[in-house]
Design a protein around this nucleic acid. Structure first.
Lengths: 203, 203
DNA sequence: CAAATTTAATGAACAGTGTTCAGTGCGCAA
DNA sequence: TTGCGCACTGAACACTGTTCATTAAATTTG
């Protein structure tokens, strides 16, 4: 069965080729700025060929979103090493924000872009994101169990912290902090993170 | 001077006609979903005519953003009636979130869409947004002056509260709360608002 | 090995997009 | 009434995502 397995492998290589080019272009020009023709040109194939490997543009979008979700998971994973749930939670938050700041394009893909959100539940990228979110909620639950907060409403605590972190990153990467001088923005974000940590301590 | 002033008026009426159609279409189909041809068809003119009144699509974008900013200001304004700065701040936050939930399309336009953010500083819409933001920061400052917080770092307090509110609204309207059942989402958002208020009290 | 069949790749096309520009025809001033 | 200016437009350009018949090459079959 050497031939079928080779064909399988070649098909996989082609998908990688497309995805790598797409991700690279996307990071350069943003998601909307990249066309199927751009990707085709980058890999030196005709636009029609792309459609032999991905049903349409949104399938490429989902595949990229999966890559981004995996990268994000890997970025957050080291936080799990902290024994103390409260330290784990702080590290998780710090790494979440750090990921967003370092990879605005990927963060965009994961949390901001609208695109084809309808059928997202069935997609691998979403399942991976859910798993990471679950880890976050579990960490909050561990803090609740260890009586780090007065409140025991894990769901709302987790959601509130997430809102702050997401708001912080997305205001930053979507250029809505222009009322602050550029060199002060990152510092303000850091101060705000410290503040929400302090606020959470007295929760 | 009857003729020139009439012409002036007619020009203004035409711009209104375009903008009203654009805003209506935009609220129906989202910003990316509306084309110049759609707008032209809606007002029964040729696409080329649009370009006699707006330089390009991004100028229509700015004009719409200004409308949205004005609507948002009007939505938030009643908060100013509260004498007590802390009550004023709470009301401001509540109304901010309410605006985002009720007008996701406009909120999108103001705080999420990337589009032509480069030259935004010179645009009226931005100036209006800055003014509303300034009112928010002043309210926080009034709370600080009245010793409602232990912290005196007005800038960081204001920014932290904004991050939370923006994160809350944008996770909601960009469909990133799908891990929560639909009927629970708005309620969770409200609980989170109450929680950040409580957190801020002990700030 | 040759013929038949499957399969990868493509060029051309369709309907859509933002935008430009050479006209066209009407209102107004002289 | 003539002529100028101006609001308006049809047609075009270069782009977009996507489809499909056709070509060419690889593989299977006789």
């Amino acid at each position: 069965m050497g031939i079928t397995s080779r064909k399988e492998r070649e098909k996989e290589e082609m998908r990688r080729l497309i995805l790598d080019a797409a991700l690279r272009l996307f990071r350069e020009k943003g998601f909307d700025g990249v066309s199927i023709r751009n990707i085709a040109e980058a890999i030196e194939y005709s636009p029609a060929t792309i459609y032999l490997y991905y049903k349409d543009k949104s399938e490429i979008f989902f595949a990229l979103q999966f890559e981004a979700a995996a990268l994000k998971r890997d970025h957050l994973l080291p936080a799990a090493a902290f024994e103390d749930p409260w330290q784990r939670l702080i590290e998780f938050g710090r790494r979440y924000i750090d990921f967003g700041m370092k990879h605005p394009d990927l963060y965009d893909l994961l949390f901001i872009i609208r695109s084809p959100m309808e059928s997202i539940e069935n997609q691998d990228c979403w399942k991976l994101g859910i798993a990471t979110h679950a880890f976050f909620v579990e960490t909050v639950q561990a803090c609740v169990d260890a009586r780090y907060f007065k409140s025991t409403d894990t769901e709302t605590i987790a959601y509130t912290l997430w809102c702050h972190a997401h708001g912080l990153v997305s205001l930053f990467i979507r250029e809505r902090m222009r009322m602050y001088p550029e060199e002060k923005r990152a510092e303000l974000a850091m101060r705000s993170f410290d503040m929400i940590v302090k606020m959470a301590e007295s929760l």
